[in-house]
Every structure is written in C-alpha cells, then in structure tokens.
Design a protein around this nucleic acid. Structure first.
Lengths: 164, 164
DNA sequence: CGCGTCTTCGACGTGCTCGTCGGTGCAGGC
DNA sequence: GCCTGCACCGACGAGCACGTCGAAGACGCG
C-alpha cells in the first residue's frame, strides 16, 4: 500500500519508461545493459505491485477543442459530508482533478473546457452541487507546463532520495 | 494548430484509446466494426496532426514515495518578464503543472513531493526564484480525483459538442 | 554448511501486430 | 466526363516483442 523498495536499477527502468513510453523490453535491455528477461521480470513486478498501471495515450487538449482551463476554489457548508461533496464535484463533467485542501475546508477543481458557454455551464454545475456554499472560478491565461509524465519533473538529487 | 475536424468515428476511436490505452488496432477494429486498415489509417493521422503524442505509462505517485501534493500561488513583481518567471517556476524540481492566471498576475504551481523536508526545499526554491515577490503554498489533504485520461471526464453531451 | 528464496541470465518459438499495397467508391473541380 | 484526392477495405507477409523455461548465481538465515 505505502511505498515499495526500489533500487537504482528500478529507477533507471522507470525513468526510461516515464520519459519514452514506447520503449520495449529489448530496447530497455540494450540501453541499460541488463538482460531482456530481467527487465521483463522487473516490469512484471511493477505491474503486480501497481506501480505502473497501464499506459495512457496523450491527447492534445487544444486540438480537441478544449482551449480553456479553469481552476475553481469551492467552499462547502460547515459540517460533515465532505467526502460526498468531493465525490459530487469529482463527477462534474470536465473535471480532471479534485483536491481537498488542508486547513481551508475548501476544494480545488481543475477542468478543461471548450469555450465560454461551456464554462458557464460548468460554473452552473458547481453552484447547483448540493453542499456548495461558495465558489470562485479562475481562468488560466497561459499554461507554462502541464507534464503528464511524473519523473521527468525531478532533478537527479530528488530522485535519488526516493530510493529506499 | 487550432482544432481539427473530427467526426463521430474519430471520437469513438479516441475515446476507446483514452479509456483503455492498451487496445491494439485489431481490437479496435473489431469493437467498432471498422476495418483494421481504416483504424490504422485514422490513427496515423492523429499522430501526424499531433492529436496523439505517444503513450505515457501511469506511475503511482504514492508507491513511489511522493505522498505530498502542494499547490502554490505565486505573485511576481509588477512589470514585464512573466514568461521568464513562468519558465523558471516550471523548471523547479517537482513541478508538474504551471499556470499563469488571468486577471491576478499570479502563477499556480502543482507539485508532488516526498515529505515535509522536500516541501521545505520546494518552498525555498520558490522564494529564491528571481522575480517572485510573494507566495503561498497549500497542502492537499485528500485527492478526490486525478485523472490523467482526458476524455473519460466528460459526459456524452459535452463530447458531442466537440465535433465539428 | 545447507537450505530456500530472490534475481539474473540466455535461448527459444510462436503468436500477433504492424504497416503496406492494390483496388474500389465517392465527391468535387474544371 | 474525366481527373484527382480522400476514405476505406481486405489480404498479406515479415518481423519481432513477449513471455516461458531451465539453470545458475547471490543472498539471507538458521
């Protein structure tokens, strides 16, 4: 459940996979100087342990017409039932990410939308969600970075610290 | 550059790919009742047009030891040079997403971190970034949703509206 | 030392996927 | 009416990536 023991070799493999999702076992084996069957053996474990859960094709938001990114900060009525509200918000059409923030009793949503009409519908959806008492939605003017790959974002130093 | 003309069939293919990244051409062909070569033909176009840009293996943050998610709101000094500051912030170790917000002259960063030590280093990095005048970093208490796949987040109605 | 488990290795075959190709039909332009 | 381009189809073959297996090395533990 928590974390798993991963040595240097594991991280080498995972970094390659992360960076270039399309590498196959033989290629990896060659790059790292490890036998293909060993690479296979390790990758099998990652899957079993749930460290890797399938592959996701990267779709281009803008080319699909989702030109607008919105961030909403949402406050809910005081009391229990956060989980339910969180679930409801998560299920709103267009929501990609839903966080519950420490200390502020508020949710953060990230959504990708088509245009202003879509945005209006989205805000309506939020307002009409049961338990929501206040919301503020902000528009992203420029996306400097939106990196679906995980490990490429870290300096070597930080990655080394992840080994156990 | 902008969006592309995608018909219903295109969206069927893309939704399948998005939902189950591991389907192959033959499988898709069978599910949709289209010839394999046609599926291939269309998918080739998606790649050419950049609608699909490779596949990314899904790594589990928590199992890798990245248990902490932080959201930072950052204000910069008044004046030009936003692009540079945005770039600098994007390159900080651990940052996965960096947005520049409309109207508020501020940046939003999303980062995945190991622990409080790592968080401290992260905040330090932000503070020491040239051009940053103010920052507030919030901790995510619970992640309700963090869906790397794009299209699964939308109701049918909204997807239909994307067709042109 | 001796046992068991984990890890690595190289070899192997085979099933399957990819990508190509030739041909067809449709639509639009001139 | 013809030509061109686009979308689609079905068949085909070559390559190869996957996954298995048996054996051997490394390691920990009693």
């Amino acid at each position: 459940m928590a974390d798993v023991n991963l040595d240097e070799k594991d991280f080498e493999i995972l970094r390659w996979l992360d960076r270039e999702g399309d590498v196959d076992v033989d290629e990896l084996s060659e790059k790292l100087g490890i036998s293909p069957s060993t690479v296979y053996y390790r990758m099998e474990k990652y899957r079993e342990q749930g460290i890797i859960d399938g592959k996701v094709p990267q779709l281009d938001q803008k080319k699909l017409g989702l030109n607008l990114t919105a961030i909403s900060e949402i406050k809910s009525e005081y009391g229990p039932g956060y989980d339910e509200i969180g679930e409801r918000l998560s299920n709103l059409s267009g929501v990609q990410t839903a966080y519950f923030m420490l200390g502020e009793k508020s949710f953060i949503l990230i959504a990708h939308l088509r245009d202003h009409d879509h945005l209006q519908k989205f805000v309506d959806d939020i307002i009409h969600t049961e338990g929501v008492s206040h919301s503020a939605t902000h528009i992203v003017l420029k996306t400097f970075k939106d990196e679906p790959r995980l490990l490429v974002n870290y300096e070597d130093e930080d990655l080394e610290a992840l080994r156990s």
